[in-house]
Write a protein that binds this DNA or RNA. Structure first.
Lengths: 351, 351
DNA sequence: ATGAAAGCGCTAACAC
DNA sequence: GTGTTAGCGCTTTCAT
């Protein structure tokens, strides 16, 4: 910048103005500066600018490194599938990027990776004006500290820190509607719910929706999932499906569960495969459902009945909240709940 | 940082060390500093750090804002499709993010947006250690200037600036293989190629591959596409398909083209729809092929025979090149060509 | 309309 | 092991 100033015979202040506020500089002077900049290959330092102006024009996103090994394997085996499998995080990124662009921000993304005091978040946090965090990505204590300095919005998780904005999807409502569909529309009465990790607030909320549906229908209300998976992966889905089958081996047809409701799609997909191996037909012998609406859910046979999450919107709303808060730090924290929708497909007997 | 230093009774240099090189500080001192930092809600400024150390730990990606309006419409009409439609850019982002993470970098992404002297690239360029640009996203002159200061890799385009690293996919090879397949395996001899914009190097390279296949097979070699679309969108694909139909209306069956090869999938998909409306059966009456291997190509009926691009790898390789160049500015510019693969599906008569 | 000068928060030599 | 001290390249009053 000093070089540009010297070369064009002005002060660095003027060079600065040319970029920040072009109209405040005489056209002729401006041209001279721009010309010099071009000749010198001048690229303004975002760092210096950020340091001096205390803003970056960048919003951030931290998401977990989580990748289902089975999904990866699918992609390996069928290169065709690779293209189609859009991850949760991909969609959030897309949503955030679009919204950020509308507001003139760029997006900095980083998946969690362990580290010392110099963790992932710290890195991101130091380079953005505000950021979104996917639940279970960042230690709460880190967030606690960081959120004192800049806006943070929590995505798809419980509000771990009460002064943060956060956005969740209607997990309970979705599962309730799903179960209602099975009960009322398909006349099923014996439903098995396969939950996830106890610490997964999403999975727990879905179970509560399931309970609610049972209650609404006058069916017995379980006080815990029939089974819990450790990881919510395809492998665990397959394992739990088989466990359930084994457990019910001795029962008569009129006692056996008529449906397995999994806490997410990954598990349901794994279950579908396990059931096929065991020769159990879906949906004739038993209905299977998931939750999330991942692309894979449409591709498997039979296509999986599930609850679709508005993931793109999650990203878009995150940006809106960040932008709002950036302009008004005092606004009380908000908590958005995004609606979900039922995707009725063949695995429950529809279509 | 000064506050942290004061509160923990050390100098700012020590605070800095705690974060940058923890082992160079006595454990006890370190704890004291960390404690103070926690209490004060200290978040190191990436800007200041970047300014002082002259590196950011961030790599960038600039991609075009391009979104096929028809694809958007699809997503609107069938919310189910939305999830599945993964964009070119999404996959590159994914590839780059993964690779960047492996090397300890975060990723800054931004889609092109018009602006004054303060353009998109400038913003990104000033905040990263190096970045990748998708072809046709950034004015060549801007790149020219910026690439003098930091590593830039050009993606999927011609090497507009000869000292830049760049990566392309094997467009010509792919189209040649595709045409060879139609000619040899399906015995077709009258092929029509529908090209794209003249300025699209990809489309042109594909046409050259087509020519080569004709030459190889001893068929007449056209010196220009049978038709050119302006935009390479679904709408244009539909329009050109109908134009071709009309043009050939007077021909006998033995003169009419037996296949339409489109320069990309979007157009081919649009064509599929137009042909269906006209009552022309695919592949019975005519074969149709695309190029790219977008997810939609699998979903349409009949599934589209196409050439799959290794888009994720494009992103991964981009990061590798950037990292390499960051460690050796003198390395001569490299030019990678990534191999493509044929996806034989129903629209050409396979499967 | 333009210039001068004071930081912005940190890193990296170099002393101690 | 820890402190001192220069900047890093810009923005931003305040003058002129």
């Amino acid at each position: 910048m000093y070089d540009v100033a010297e070369r064009s015979g002005v002060s660095i202040a003027t060079v600065s103005r040319v970029y920040r506020n072009p109209d405040s500089v005489r056209a002729q002077t401006r041209e001279r500066v721009l010309e010099a900049a071009r000749e010198l290959g001048y690229v303004p330092s975002g760092n210096a600018r950020g340091l001096a102006s205390r803003t970056t024009g960048v919003l951030g996103l931290c998401f977990p490194d989580y990748a289902d090994p089975d999904a990866e394997a699918d992609a390996e085996a069928d290169s065709d599938a690779d293209d189609a499998v859009m991850l949760y995080s991909d969609q959030i990124i897309r949503g955030m990027e679009r919204a950020a662009r509308r507001h003139g921000y760029a997006l900095l993304i980083a998946a969690s990776l362990e580290g010392g005091p110099e963790s992932l978040v710290a890195k991101v946090a130091g380079r953005v004006d505000g950021f979104a965090v996917l639940a279970q990505t960042v230690p709460t204590e880190d967030l606690e500290v960081i959120s004192r300095r800049l806006p943070v919005v929590m995505l798809a998780g419980p509000r771990e820190i009460d002064h943060l904005d956060h956005i969740v999807v209607a997990n309970a409502d979705g599962e309730r509607e799903l179960a209602r569909h099975l009960i009322e529309d398909h006349g099923l009465r014996r439903l098995a719910f396969i939950g996830g990790e106890v610490e997964s607030p999403d999975a727990e909320a879905r179970f509560r929706g399931f309970q609610q549906a049972c209650r609404d229908a006058g069916l017995p209300v379980p006080d815990a999932p029939d089974l819990r998976a450790e990881m919510m992966t395809q492998a665990e889905g397959a394992r739990t499906a088989e466990a359930l089958l084994d457990r019910n081996a001795g029962l008569s047809d009129s006692e056996r569960p008529q449906a397995m409701l999994f806490a997410n799609d990954q598990m349901a997909v794994g279950a579908l495969r396990a059931l096929e191996r065991r020769g159990v037909r879906v949906p004739e012998d038993i209905a299977v459902t998931g939750f999330d609406g991942i692309p894979l859910s449409r591709i498997v046979r039979p296509p999986l009945t599930t609850v679709r999450q508005p993931i793109r919107q999650l990203g878009e709303q995150a940006v809106e909240l960040l932008v709002q808060r950036l302009s008004d730090r005092e606004r009380p924290p908000v908590s958005l709940m995004l609606p979900v929708s039922l995707a009725r497909r063949a695995s429950c007997g529809c279509g």
